[in-house]
């Protein structure tokens, strides 16, 4: 399923980008553009809500690492929430979880 992105705002005012669908090579450019757009509106924190991510591969991992680095350069912390158990395992095996913060709290 192609990636679908929705912009929302957290109760605390943080922008939230809700990801729905497959996070693969076809999603990379779309997500990168949405994150850049989100960073332009984010005061210090940008949440990526991952509950609806049905698939993620190495392209998705690299896209998330790039997004996190882009955010950090602009002084914004990029945080993943709603990470499902299979994704959590993938993020551990790829060590993405040593770079990108993964929040426990529900968002979006």
């Amino acid at each position: 399923m192609p990636i679908h992105l929705e912009r929302r705002t957290d109760p605390d005012g943080s922008p939230v980008l809700v990801l729905i669908g497959d996070l693969d090579r076809e999603a990379a450019d779309h997500l990168a553009a949405a994150v850049r757009d989100g960073l332009a509106h984010s005061p210090g924190r940008l949440v990526l809500q991952m509950t609806g991510v049905s698939f993620c591969d190495s392209s998705g991992i690299v896209t998330l690492l790039d997004a996190h680095a882009d955010a950090a350069r602009g002084g914004t912390e990029l945080v993943l929430t709603g990470v499902t158990p299979h994704l959590r395992g993938l993020f551990r095996i790829s060590a993405l979880d040593q770079v990108v913060p993964i929040g426990e709290e529900p968002h979006g």
Partner: peptide, 9 residues
Amino acid sequence: PPVGSRRGY
């Protein structure tokens, strides 16, 4: 791959 690598996964 090294932590944070952009390739090799």
